[in-house]
Design a binder for these strands. Structure first.
Lengths: 169, 169
DNA sequence: CGACACATGTAACACGTTACATGATTTG
DNA sequence: CAAATCATGTAACGTGTTACATGTGTCG
């Protein structure tokens, strides 16, 4: 439930056809969210099925545009805020928590390994930051960096909790 | 591809049946990752289909255990590190980047709205931190808090980039 | 001409998720 | 006994994703 809304958002700026949407989507996300073209069409089919977009145009050049329902759905999306209810499902979190279940030793191993990999990833992302003045590209790169930093910080917290606990025991 | 591995990880500690796995999964994630029981069974079916687990036991009390392939797959999972390749797909990121496409005014609106909601969420999560000494519960709560903090920090970065740019223009 | 970008689409599969149906066992 | 918990499973759907097939136009 993200590609859907992304395509809707792009259509709000005017009717497009599928291939243009793929290009626009990847441009808007500065390349951090590559899309298989096929997925654009399947997603557009589903949006049409749900009455959020309709199409005009001959075969070989279909143009998609928002319907009234589509505009409404998009409006809701803009206003929607992150829900408390189903918390973010994070694979790193799961892995570490499952490792804890296997004993603190195992968990500390996993944490150490993940941290060193994440550190390398973070440095790569910092290095590959785009130079140009395009705010979208800069923001996309920031997102990746901030995420990696947060994961690292969490791993440090986990390690601290485990070692503190070990020391107490 | 996360529930799968979580169940495998739980089975590494010994054979279990489906319902036990649901309970154990939710206990290990300290309740932040609720599972519909049905999903446990569908996932176990798929794991069996893929030869990673097999079952013993009569009807009404099937017991699942890891196969050799399952042990191997799990070993890979423990060692696996976050891939650079498909970067994390984040709905918040998408929303803000798409808003930028609609103009900086719109983006700043979205950022403001998201930030205030996230701030409330963060405070709620800090408030509801578990008191007990269970490290897993504390770590799970930490993960949610750290994630919210990171999202907030990113929103601040975005706003700074947009306003700085506006000032320059 | 050959390669490449533009353009559309289908088929198939994976995982996550929910709703529903069913029965055994425990416990108040 | 009635309710809750334990326990298993099926059917169905949604999104994401890939692989594949097909054709047009453009440019070196």
């Amino acid at each position: 439930m993200a590609v859907r809304e992304g395509l809707l958002a792009l259509l709000e700026e005017g009717p497009r056809h599928g291939y243009q949407l793929k290009t626009a989507f990847e441009a808007a996300t500065a390349g951090v969210w590559p899309l298989n073209v096929g997925q654009v069409y399947t997603t557009l089919d589903r949006l049409e099925r749900d009455g959020l977009v309709d199409t005009v145009g001959d075969d070989g050049q279909r143009t998609y545009r928002l319907t009234v329902d589509g505009v409404a759905a998009l409006g809701e999306w803009w206003r929607a805020v992150p829900a408390e209810d189903p918390p973010p499902r994070d694979e790193l979190m799961l892995k570490v928590l499952m490792a804890v279940e296997h004993g603190h030793e195992h968990a500390l191993d996993v944490i150490t390994r993940q941290r060193s990999a994440l550190l390398a990833l973070l440095q790569a992302r910092r290095r590959d930051r785009p130079a140009g003045g395009d705010p979208a590209a800069a923001m996309a790169a920031d997102a990746l960096v901030v995420r990696a930093e947060a994961d690292l910080r969490w791993l440090d917290l986990c390690e601290a909790r485990l070692t503190r606990r070990k020391a107490t025991t």
